[in-house]
Nucleic acid binder design. Sequence first.
DNA 1: CAGTGGTCTAGACCACGAA
DNA 2: TCGTGGTCTAGACCACTGT
Lengths: 247, 247
Amino acid sequence: MTGAVPSRHKDIADDLRNQITTGRIRPGERLPSEADLADRYRVSTVTLRRALAVLQGEGLVEKIHGKGNFVRRPHRKIMYVGGWGTLDPWTAAEPALRVTVRSATVQAHGHLTTLLKVSEGSPLTELSCISHAGESPQGLARIYIPRDLTPVGDFDDTSSCWEAATRFAVLGPPPAAVRETAYARTPTPDEASALRIGHAAPVLGITRIATDATGRIVEAALLVFPGDRVDAVFATQLMTDERQIQA
Amino acid sequence: MTGAVPSRHKDIADDLRNQITTGRIRPGERLPSEADLADRYRVSTVTLRRALAVLQGEGLVEKIHGKGNFVRRPHRKIMYVGGWGTLDPWTAAEPALRVTVRSATVQAHGHLTTLLKVSEGSPLTELSCISHAGESPQGLARIYIPRDLTPVGDFDDTSSCWEAATRFAVLGPPPAAVRETAYARTPTPDEASALRIGHAAPVLGITRIATDATGRIVEAALLVFPGDRVDAVFATQLMTDERQIQA
DNA sequence: CAGTGGTCTAGACCACGAA
DNA sequence: TCGTGGTCTAGACCACTGT
């Protein structure tokens, strides 16, 4: 197609990728320092860093400022199950899965009022969750629930809410309908550092709106997952009649 | 939280972003050359290019080698509707929406055999679709249908299949169930050039498997959308009983 | 050809992490 | 303090686009 563009950094990325995937450099191991690698490949540090950026974007390498570049442990792909609004049971049962939840009361503002269809300033319970699988951050969630629907009790390790949060499941009253919007984007700086991914690594976002039988919104959840670790699956049973509705 | 890291390129990106979003630089317009901008901001070309890379990742700027940096025309977010397996009707009705379909007969191999649960070498019809909204590529689709289920007739502009492809809808016999997996990743080089996005711009991918009442897979579709232009929405009605199924 | 973006260099200085 | 990654420079050379 197009002429081959000389790009030393891609060659280097290819070489390092091979060394990683063939096991010559093992998961968790630290790569030689960037200065060393630059020397070895006879390139400038800038070029070498571009090569590492490629691998970081692929989720193969994790950079830690002041410590070095590390080969990421390969992770089984986690499944977020749509409709259920939960990580798949197998994943959620993982013993190494730790979740940190921070709860706060906030007032609805801006986007939140639109999402929850509440008036500006309405009291909401905000749950900030971060889920780790072993060392690696695995997902972020910010869940908003109208204050009057919030289950009583603290979100400590023993509460059922904590259990639900572990699975990123819908909190609050059982919903009658769930609407989930999935999108792909780059992480915000906050998300990038929280998830320990590059600023260019794609994240899979899911905005989940749960409504009860009366149509009232009982929960809005903003979920963010590293793109290389999480897929979202949605299953639909179609009545043959349903297909007629579509024009 | 963390100390402010000096990063001139982010400041520049912020400034340019403001100029774009406030309309001081208009959609379709060409930015000053990188050399000019580097001069104006008193930075090196490398730093300025990092700033532009940020904006490109956000989908605000399109770089064209040898021509310049252009402000991308803002696009309404397109909705892919899960379950229905189609772009939303409003979008699909867009008159400016053009679709190019190329059909071929291929033999199942590798991943395809797993996806479609057919044996190696089974004949499949492959439809390669690319959808444009005006100038901008908007989505790619590769759809696979078992040869014996393929509707007869060519996929010309007048066929109903072409109409369905326009909406990225499920082809072949009406399915009884659809399973869609959504993921976020960076584009392959092919996808990046076909969609005219950067190699680091996130894409939203959807793998769609449609099965008939007997459980036979009647279609597998691999859809790829630019992350900044397409969202996917999935709606679920929950019977109260359904919630019990979950352990 | 001239003008544009794409890649690379050799070195400087700053910020973070662990002794 | 030292070794690490993070940012930046001033300039060179290559590749693509249009005249």
